[in-house]
Simulated scan of single mutants.
Amino acid sequence: MSLRITVVGGGIIGLTTACTILKDYSSYPQLQLVIISERFSPDTTADVSAGYWEPYGLETIDERTLRWAGYTYDVFMSEFFSTKAARAGIMKVPAYTLYGYNGQNKGKNTLKPTFSTLVRHFRMLDECEMSIFDHLKPTSGFVMSTIAVEVRCYLHEVRRFLGQDPRVKFIHKRISSFQELTDQTDLIVNCTGLGARQLANDHTVRPARGQIIRVQAPWIKAVYNFDTDEGEGYIIPQMNCVVLGGTFQLNDWNTATVKSDTKKILRMCSKCLPALEQIHHGKVQVGLRPYRDDGVRLEHEKTSDGMDIVHCYGHSGSGVTLSWGCARDVVEIIKTLVPIVESEQSKSETGMPLHEQLWRLVEYKNTNHLRSKV
């Protein structure tokens, strides 16, 4: 049985979807899985992000969104407690979120966020813990255990895994219309993010410009989200740097760095952690988040010319947070179009941890061995 599936989009949504397809359709020896993208890592929007797990930049967080986020959280957390953590750039970190600044907005945001039941070690901050941040004078806050993913490392390892399977092919190419693929595939998965504005003719998709600074600040080991008199700031550690942010500028297509934004980010972050005032050098980056007015679009479309397209785009600033959960739902839709024929191979893998079923580390041929001096 042959099955040709084309995933359009090579970011975190496209590659996690490709992995899930490969897992669930492993019994198809004639599977042809093609991933087409104008950009692959390290040039995707996700590569700019801090890879922080928390639903962010979405107009509403409904039950479906929480299901996607919870599944993804569990995958990342299990990967942290596995051999994948170092090479895939997965860190488990405490995250503090502080509401209000200088005593303003008192009484607001005192309820637990809707995602609080999905994470480990969640608690609202008591008065003693709030006093630690007295220089900000927040009015309420919470702390939880979450995941920060070095997306550049993660996508590199996932792509290496996919590339080991002869049924998977990567094509570095820009397509202007899905009709270009009519005779080349049986089914299309649209993971084009902001590109869906043109490809899916969806003008509810628009950019939410994000500018960040990657700095060397090795003393920072926790995430901080906080309010200031200039807006919301965040500080997110990664394996080899710390991400300072940020901006969320709707309808701004500018991919060039803006000096005034850089200065503002540094001012905001220094209000939370004053030692950052000493930072004078960093890598400033810009990414355009794929914001969508109606939230994530994840559904099947049968076009007028008979093409089957499963859309999965509009994740805004939550691409990493929703990635594996959305990928699972995409494949559930595909199963209604192409039922799975189980094999002994697929059955034998069910005893493996879920994250290992989704993708595995591919060993480098040249391994460096530690040697002790005698």
Rank of each mutant, 00 (worst) to 15 (best):
L288K: 08
I5C: 06
I265Y: 00
I236A: 03
C153N: 13
F76S: 06
P339V: 03
S145K: 14
F170A: 07
I35V: 13
E180H: 11
M352R: 15
R152G: 11
I220E: 06
M352A: 14
Q104S: 15
D62V: 10
H311N: 08
T65M: 03
D24A: 11
A327N: 04
L22W: 02
G14R: 03
L273I: 07
M144A: 05
D24G: 11
K173H: 14
D261T: 11
R167F: 07
P290T: 11
L33K: 02
D202M: 05
Y73C: 06
C19G: 07
G193A: 12
D252V: 04
L125N: 01
W359H: 11
G325N: 04
V362R: 07
D24W: 14
T72H: 00
D134K: 11
L125W: 05
V243N: 03
T350M: 14
R120F: 15
L33T: 07
N105G: 07
Q345Y: 13
A275K: 11
E356H: 08
S177V: 08
T114E: 12
K347L: 14
T65D: 11
I235D: 00
A88M: 15
G57N: 06
M124L: 14
V168F: 00
N251T: 08
W68R: 02
L58V: 04
T228Q: 05
P207Q: 03
Y364L: 15
Y52P: 00
K264N: 11
E230L: 12
D74R: 12
S323Q: 09
I340F: 09
V34P: 01
Y101V: 03
M307L: 13
G319T: 05
I265R: 00
N225R: 00
A196L: 06
Q211H: 02
E38S: 13
A85W: 08
P166S: 15
K283I: 11
N102H: 15
D329Y: 02
E299P: 03
S140E: 08
Y73H: 09
L288F: 14
Y291T: 00
M130A: 13
V374M: 15
G89S: 07
V258I: 11
Q357E: 14
V93R: 09
P353M: 15
Q104K: 10
W68G: 00
P237V: 08
Q164H: 12
Y56P: 05
E232C: 10
E150S: 09
G282R: 00
G245M: 01
R67S: 07
H355R: 11
G11Q: 05
L250F: 08
I309A: 04
G9C: 13
Q238L: 10
L266Q: 02
L98F: 02
V151P: 01
C312S: 14
I90Q: 02
T6V: 09
R328G: 03
A327G: 07
L199P: 05
P138V: 05
I36R: 01
Y73P: 01
V205Q: 02
E54V: 05
F81S: 15
M1C: 10
F142R: 00
R160K: 09
E301T: 13
H315F: 12
S316N: 14
R371W: 13
T367R: 13
C241E: 10
T97H: 09
A275R: 12
